[in-house]
Every structure is written in structure tokens, then in C-alpha cells.
């Protein structure tokens, strides 16, 4: 069986005033097609760095290991090539783009990805129809499409906008970096439904979260516990409950 996503010995550093500070210290992770995996871990364990490195942010220096995505060397690809290949990162802190209209940006992104995938681009009418339907499914007020990207959005609106982008870009592999943070329970349910709607044998996801709560709505196939840039333990969904009960400190001292 050829792995869908395979991370082997991934190590990365970030520049810290001229010194290379190690953040990822050898990540091994395999995510088969159609599965949703969760990563949990304390602050500073490297979860967000992992998501950025997978999406191609160049602030990080990959110092070892490899990532293969559907048989391709993911680390050799530009961020936009990764997006075209089907990788999507829902940002923990979605970026504001003043002066950039949300609908126009989304259409530019969707058509860039469709073009790269050899699919027909949406015309303005097709796009608006699809975007409105996707926004409605996420209970997003339609005026968010008319505003500038994430500018003046509430925390919950930003997260919904991320999920809207995800739905429209139709990724094969989505990374959700603390998409639950700052969401009330209703918003959490809506966002989770957005993710669950994509579930299929052709869609995999890596859900990064602090809290077990999100995993009640997006039930993972596997849960991984991360600390100090490594995966310390992997298990089924019950691992999340164990973590919730014990806390990271208790769990980590036991694991060590």
C-alpha cells in the first residue's frame, strides 16, 4: 500500500536571533487516505510548526527527514503548488488582508487551484453561486463575502471563513490548526460539520487541538500526543479522553 501522507524523521529549526533553534526533533507520522488524525500537546510542543512546515512556510528551516504526499516530495514544492496538489492549512490565527475583497480573493484562489488541477475555472456567476451555498452551510452571514479578508471579523467569523475556503478549495488533505480556539459551542458544531461534510475515502485531515471537546464532533481515527517536537504516543480516540482526564503534565511524566 502506498502511503497517502508519510512523514519520516522530520526535523526543523527556526532562526532565533541568529541561532538555529530546534522545534521539530524527528516527527514520524503516517496518515492513510480517508482518515482523520488528531495531534494534541502542550503549548510549545511544535504542533503549529508542523502545520506550517507541511504548508510550506519558509520561516522554518527543514534540517532533516522527508514528507511524501501521494508519492510526491512535499517539501520540494512551493506553498501554491502544495495547495494545488490538495494540501490546505486552516490557520490558527487567520491573516487579515486589508483592501482585499473576500469574495474576489476566494475566487482568485479557487480558480488558481482549479487551473493548476486542469479543471475549468469558475466564471463569476458559478463562483458566487457555489460560494453562497458554502457560506450558507456554515451559517456565515453573506456580507462577510463582501468585506475585506478577515478584516474586522470576530474570532468565530475568521474560523468559519477558513472552513469556507477549505470547502471551496476542495483539498485532499487538510490541517486544522486549533480551529476550535475562540469558538463557542454552536460555532464549534458548525465548523465541525463543515469538516465532516468533506469526509470521504479521498479526504484526510490532521486536526491540531488543545482540547478533547472538538474531537467529540470530529471523531478521529487516530490520536497522537506531541511534546518537545516529537510524537510521544499514538492511539485511538480514547487517548484524547485519557489526556483530558490526566492533563498533559501527568500524562507526559507517565509517558517519560
Amino acid at each position: 500500500m502506498s502511503a497517502f501522507l508519510s512523514i519520516e524523521g522530520l526535523a526543523a529549526t527556526i532562526d532565533d536571533n541568529g541561532a538555529a533553534k530546534p522545534i521539530l526533533n524527528g516527527i514520524d507520522l503516517e496518515i492513510p487516505a480517508g482518515e482523520i488524525h488528531a495531534i494534541m500537546g502542550p503549548n510549545g510542543s511544535g504542533k503549529s510548526t508542523l502545520s506550517y512546515v507541511l504548508a510550506g512556510r519558509d520561516d522554518y528551516q527543514v534540517t532533516g527527514g522527508s514528507v511524501s504526499f501521494q508519492g510526491r516530495d512535499l517539501l520540494a514544492m512551493e506553498p501554491e503548488q502544495r495547495a494545488a496538489a490538495g494540501v490546505f492549512l486552516a490557520f490558527q490565527a487567520p491573516v487579515e488582508l486589508p483592501g482585499v475583497n473576500n469574495a474576489n480573493f476566494l475566487r482568485t484562489a479557487v480558480n488558481a487551484v482549479r487551473r493548476a488541477r486542469g479543471e475549468a475555472e469558475y466564471d463569476a456567476v458559478q463562483f458566487l453561486k457555489a460560494a453562497r451555498a458554502a457560506a450558507k452551510a456554515l451559517s456565515m452571514p453573506e456580507d462577510l463575502l463582501k468585506r475585506n479578508v478577515n478584516v474586522g471579523f470576530s474570532g468565530g467569523e475568521k474560523k468559519r471563513n477558513e472552513v469556507l475556503q477549505m470547502a471551496m478549495l476542495a483539498p485532499r488533505f487538510a490541517i486544522l490548526d486549533e480551529t476550535d480556539s475562540g469558538l463557542d459551542i454552536d460555532a464549534l458544531r458548525i465548523v465541525a460539520e463543515g469538516v465532516n461534510a468533506l469526509r470521504s475515502p479521498d479526504f484526510s485531515a490532521l486536526v491540531i487541538t488543545h482540547h478533547q471537546r472538538l474531537l467529540d464532533y470530529i471523531v478521529p481515527d487516530r490520536v497522537h500526543v506531541m511534546a518537545n517536537g516529537r510524537i510521544l504516543k499514538s492511539g485511538g480516540p480514547e487517548l484524547a479522553h485519557q489526556l483530558e482526564a490526566q492533563g498533559y503534565a501527568g500524562f507526559l511524566s507517565e509517558a517519560a
Binding site: P79, E80, F91, L97, A109, V113, A116, Q165
Partner: peptide, 11 residues
């Protein structure tokens, strides 16, 4: 901002 846009497929 550039990375955000590129990660959504915009060259």
C-alpha cells in the same frame, strides 16, 4: 500575508 495567500493556491 504573502504566505497566507500562497497557501490558498495563489501564485
Amino acid at each position: 500575508q504573502l504566505f497566507y495567500m500562497r497557501s490558498r493556491g495563489v501564485p
